[in-house]
Simulated assay, not measured.
Amino acid sequence: MTEKVDVLLLRLDPELPPPSYAHPGDAGADLVTAVDVVLPPGERAVVPTGIAIALPDGYAAFIHPRSGLGAKLGVTLVNAPGTVDAGYRGEIKVTLLNTDIRETVRLRRGDRVAQMVVQRVGHAVFHEVEALPGSARGAAGFGSTGGLSAAGAASEHNSEEGA
């Protein structure tokens, strides 16, 4: 069963709907824009959502892009995921980015523009050491586990040689 977390919600714009889950079991609650937004190609805008929240200590809210906006319109969030700390009491705003290189995107007040995932978070206690213990991965990063098929890797390698 999903853990329930009590979150205090202040609707700064009572005409807008509160965050809600579209389907049972969804991780993210939809957030809407409080204003009409016009995003020309490659442009970004900070968009108010009309809500403020108070999270319990030990929790944070993470603001994620909506996959449908990305797939259909090329709209994403600049700092995805955005972090709302438990102590923040201001309006939640999202920084939308139109990644489409040709089409202007128009969003209407009340359109769903992001989703908020509330999660339990821990506080790290940092211990400075002279060296870190070994691991199977070590310091390998940025593509060290592959990701391209053998054919894709070969064609990428060949195009680099031909350049």
Rank of each mutant, 00 (worst) to 15 (best):
P48M: 06
N158T: 15
A22Y: 04
V7W: 00
L73S: 13
E103K: 15
V129I: 10
M116V: 08
A22M: 03
P65R: 05
D111W: 00
G70L: 06
L55I: 02
R137V: 12
P56E: 06
G82V: 10
V113N: 04
P133S: 15
G70P: 03
V32E: 01
A136I: 01
L77F: 09
N98Y: 07
A27T: 06
I53M: 05
V38P: 00
D13H: 07
G143T: 14
Q115G: 12
K93M: 13
Y59K: 06
L69Q: 08
S135K: 06
L107A: 03
V32D: 01
V129D: 04
Y59P: 06
D6H: 09
R11D: 01
D30A: 03
A153I: 04
L96T: 12
Y21H: 13
R11E: 07
I51N: 03
P40Y: 02
P56H: 06
G68K: 02
S67L: 02
A153P: 04
L39Q: 13
A154W: 13
L148W: 07
T99Q: 10
P40Q: 02
S159K: 12
P56W: 01
G28E: 01
A153K: 11
G134M: 13
E160S: 09
T76L: 03
G87Q: 14
S20F: 08
T95P: 00
E161G: 10
P14S: 09
I51T: 07
L9S: 11
G68F: 04
K72T: 08
A27Q: 08
G90H: 06
S155G: 05
R66G: 07
Q119C: 15
S144G: 10
V105W: 00
A131H: 11
A150K: 15
R66E: 01
A139R: 00
K93S: 15
Y88S: 00
P14G: 05
E3V: 13
A52Y: 00
T145Q: 12
P81I: 03
Q119T: 15
G134W: 11
D30W: 00
L69A: 09
V125D: 08
